[in-house]
């Protein structure tokens, strides 16, 4: 039986997620909740036959038995309040904001580690795109310092992202450490207004200590890219990964080499056009997590 779920937040992320949930056999979207009945997201939800209440989290409080899991695609500040309410109602929260109240989940790295958690955090779009690469390196060698640079088209960055840009960098950097396995992580985000809009780009740099098996690093990266591409079909290497010679005076100490991984994410074009790979990677990852939780619920209940 499919798990009844709702989306709260009818912006870019929430609306894209709606389209992806339509294709899920294990998750049954009951309601798309917003705060503006006239918003594009709620209008589309109504057109597609979903409940589309405009009274925000209140709707969940009024209908606590209607859903078992809520995808929160509002903003970091708003999710802090929602997290508390959902926890009290016993409803699992999959948090697509950078609020990071619960454990962080990156499907290709730690999908099954937090299936019983009341609240899991999807990190950020850039975190979903780059943490697997750091994990790929850190399963081969010690990573004293890792860094990611994410460039997204201006059109694909909604007001939530724009107001939460510090939360993006903090949460992403922590994910590189906690899940990627880097000793120190740093995150950078750039908005690019070029027309036509650019595809989402992500670059990962990892410092490589003396004695690292470079071939093993490169092979591990290529293999992890394939793992992520299983749930984000537009995720790919723009160039083969390269090892560059330093030395580099990183915050984690001087290293002789770095690996540079140049990635591109083309979206599925569900809501925004294909340039918005940053939406896809978040929503596709969230569906993975939701489905894993649903399967886990079936086994345990």
């Amino acid at each position: 039986m499919a798990l009844p779920v709702a989306i709260i937040g009818s912006g870019n992320i929430g609306t894209d997620l709606m389209y992806k949930l339509e294709r899920s056999e294990h998750l049954d979207l009951v309601a798309m909740i917003g705060i503006d009945a006239a918003s594009d997201g709620l209008t589309r939800a109504r057109e597609r036959g979903y409940l589309a209440p405009a009274n925000g989290i209140e709707w969940v409080q009024q209908n606590p038995a209607a859903v078992r899991l809520v995808f929160d695609a509002t903003s970091a500040y708003v999710h802090v309040r929602h997290a508390k309410i959902l926890a009290e109602l016993g409803i699992t929260a999959v948090d697509l904001t950078p609020a990071a109240r619960g454990p962080k989940v990156i499907p290709s790295v730690n999908l099954r580690e937090h299936l019983d958690a009341p609240n899991v955090n999807m990190v950020t779009c850039g975190g979903q795109a780059t943490t697997p690469m750091v994990a790929a390196v850190s399963r081969v060698t010690r990573v004293p310092y890792a860094e990611m640079v994410s460039t997204v088209s201006s059109k694909s960055a909604g007001p939530g992202t724009r107001q939460n840009i510090d939360e993006f960098t903090r949460t992403t950097a922590r994910a590189l450490e906690e899940i990627g396995g880097a000793e120190i992580g740093k995150a950078i985000i750039i908005l690019n207004p070029a027309e036509p809009p650019i595809l989402m780009r992500n670059t990962v740099y990892c410092g490589l200590p003396e004695g690292t098996d470079h071939d093993a690093v490169l092979a591990s990266v290529v293999s992890m890219v394939a793992d992520v591409a299983k749930y984000v079909p537009g995720y790919r290497l723009k160039q083969p990964p390269v090892i560059e010679e330093g030395p580099y005076n990183t915050p984690g100490g001087v290293v002789p080499h770095r690996v540079v991984v140049l990635l591109e994410v083309e979206g599925a074009g569900d809501y925004l056009p294909t340039y918005a790979g940053n939406l896809d990677i978040m929503t596709a990852a969230a569906v993975q997590v939701g489905e894993a939780i649903a399967a886990h619920h079936e086994v345990t209940t």
């Binding site: 640079v149 460039t151 908005l191 070029a194 650019i198 780009r201 670059t203 540079v260 140049l262």
Partner: peptide, 21 residues
């Protein structure tokens, strides 16, 4: 030509690797 903006220094490596290829 790619209309990169300030901060996208990573694209320098991207372009160089591509040109070399």
């Amino acid at each position: 030509a790619r209309k990169v903006v300030g901060g996208q220094e990573d694209m320098i490596i991207d372009v160089a690797v591509e040109l070399a290829r």
